[in-house]
Nucleic acid binder design. Structure first.
Lengths: 228, 228
DNA sequence: TAATTTTGATTGACTGATCAATCAACAAAA
DNA sequence: TTTTGTTGATTGATCAGTCAATCAAAATTA
């Protein structure tokens, strides 16, 4: 029953299947056959559309990152104040899809892969920068710049750490407790270092930082890179 | 030049080689041949002594954990007060050997492996519990118990998170900055919640918590498990 | 001491399984 | 008939694990 216009559907099915298989297996050492089977097609077709296993894996992490970005954009648009946006960033990190064991396992597998694959590392660096940028943009109106950077590092580390601890499945502090822990960190840090007058009114109108919007390239980066 | 009594030397050489190869490669997908070559023996010998690749890998993570424990014991013995012991725990986590890129890469690889290997997960859970236990034991004299648990979770998450962020190699905050960030978290949390009178004098005499000393089994755990 | 047997250490060569990747061929739509 | 989708069969490479054989030290015996 082959029709024309199958390509986008097949690609999506294969990427989704790859994500599920990787999440279940907890590793990138999964076979094209298994992915293809889960997607309901033959292994040969996976190669036909993606050319190589590596390419399919790249598309898979790209999709993982896109999902996270979309969630973040939605949550940030609904938050009116910098402080609310900070909470939105934290909340999104621990919400449902992202904090599911399989998704966490997939993230972890990609972190490991980043040690070998330049392309994979690039994507994870983008995630790290985006998180930092989102935090920083909304911290700056609330405290001095150097303090904002300090807090941003701390929050980002805590989020990633809670992820990795969750991956072990022992002492499972849930999503709510994770959010509470991170929020508490932000709160007490901000209490310590109240905003200076000069930066109190400098909040950007949209609250969406540069890294979130479809972005023009920053000067220091190489060009000819496909955006996620 | 075969002599008698080679076994312990060969085992150590192979485990060390495995750690180096895994660290360089950033993955457990390394061949027995490569490990054996780095150890200066034939692949067959590695199988002869360890029986299987999995077993060699298990011994490898065991050695990684032992190294960390030894460092912690040394540092804790030299620290006189609970607060100093907290600093020691933090400091050890980021010190030299442990924070080297290859070592971090190896840890990460084992975290990923833990998704599949029950045995590997067990070791990482032990690490997590030990860290938590060390923190908790030295926090309890300094603040209320429930707060101590809260802080311990936060510190542990932050340490692990700083590790994983370090593994990406982007925005490399160094060991010192990582220590400062974590110390700062402990300090402001303790400032917030001063010790209640009832627990002020309850510090254990040695400061070495149960998880650190060669330990009797806790009741809730399965028996017949070799200790690390 | 000299001759031997035993034992542990070590390897090269081989096997069987797995898997990514390829290709020739076919089916259905355009 | 050309284009797009699809697969079964196959290939070539990689690897964990096995095995029989070798070698040298130690133990035993003569």
């Amino acid at each position: 029953m082959p029709k024309v216009g199958m390509e986008p559907m097949r690609r999506k099915a294969l990427v989704d299947a790859a994500l599920r298989v990787i999440g279940d297996h907890g590793s990138l050492s999964v076979t094209m056959s298994e992915i293809a089977r889960k997607a309901g097609v033959s292994p040969a077709l996976a190669h036909h559309y993606f050319g190589s296993k590596e390419q399919l894996l790249i598309e898979t992490i790209r999709s993982l990152l896109k999902q996270l970005r979309d969630d973040a954009v939605t949550a940030l648009k609904a938050a009116p104040t910098p402080r609310a946006r900070l909470s939105a960033v934290i909340s999104v990190s621990f919400h449902a899809d992202q904090f599911a064991p399989q998704t966490i396992a997939a993230w972890l597998a990609f972190y490991a892969e980043a040690q070998r694959s330049e392309e994979t590392r690039r994507f994870l660096v983008i995630y790290a920068r985006r998180l930092r940028s989102n935090l920083l943009a909304n911290l700056k109106p609330l405290c001095p710049v150097d303090v904002a950077e300090h807090i941003a590092e701390g929050v980002a580390a805590m989020i990633d750490g809670l992820y990795i601890r969750q991956s072990l499945g022992s002492t499972p502090i849930g999503a709510e407790a994770s959010i509470a822990l991170t929020e508490d960190y932000v709160t007490i840090q901000l209490d310590r270092h109240p905003a200076s007058l000069s930066e109190a009114g400098a909040a950007p109108s949209s609250g969406l930082s540069g890294h979130l919007l479809p972005e023009g390239r920053r000067e220091s980066e190489p060009k000819h890179r496909k955006d996620i």
